[in-house]
Amino acid sequence: MAASRDGYGQALLDMIDDKEVVILEADLGKSTKSLHFRNARPERTISCGIGEQNMMLVAAGLASSGYTPFASTFAIFTERAFEQIRNGIARPGLAVHICGSHGGAHTGTDGGSAQSIEDLSIYRTLPNMTVMHPCDDVSATVLTKQCRNLTGPSYMRTARNKTPVLYDGREDTLKIGKGVVHRDGNDVAIIACGVLVAKAIEAADILTDDGIEASVVDMHTLKPLDEDLVAKLVGDCGCVVTAEDHLLIGGLGGAVAEFLVSNIPAPLERVGVNDRFGESGQAEEMLDLLSINTADIVAAAKRAISRK
């Protein structure tokens, strides 16, 4: 078990000798895990205090001057700087890489104010933006380091709490914009992101008991969506389930629905937060409360199959 935010911290640490990499913090480096880079390279770490709006544009200024900034804070607080990100980063297409940690209801006891369940949707709406939500620490490390090769901006949500490690020794399968198949099956395709990828694999195991074989995909990149893979899954399975610790509106389910409805209509069941905010509770309790846990994925798979 490990937290994806630790993977982000590891990626930054792996890049300390890349002189074009600069880190920006808004008093949450200990939480987002940029602190390791700060300790190693304080001269390339810029503290912005508790000032996210300023931080995003300082990053933009650095990017316009040839540096590759990685700016992190809690997912929810990146949203405070939405217009700065929109007009200052995305519109000019500056390669600023934003990491929002503590995303999703899985964040837990801090409560609804801290649980960003809308960030993926928000950042998907911005032209030029790459949007990612890795499921474990290893993939967070690999994908963060791949951001260095992007020519435009990115947003990555990481999670506060530990989840199963799924990519140890499988680093080579990861590429921004390409979903990863974790399990093959022909009855239903479960496409998940973030903390629900491990749950989707659990759900697929449970479905086997009922004679249902599910494909499970980690769609760590929501934008650009791996449309070829989604199309292939529809061809192989005939129906789709999406699963995310995020609102039903505009996240992974939204992205897949938009693609399907315009290209290859197929039964789709979406597991996600249904138009409400979270509250204080343990990570697992939150997934149960919001009906986005393993059992909900199992039920959604059966509904999807029944609609074929």
Binding site: V22, Q53, M56, V58, S64
Partner: peptide
């Protein structure tokens, strides 16, 4: 803020 980034 952008200017601060350029100055850094």
């Amino acid at each position: 803020s952008f200017g601060i980034g350029c100055a850094h």
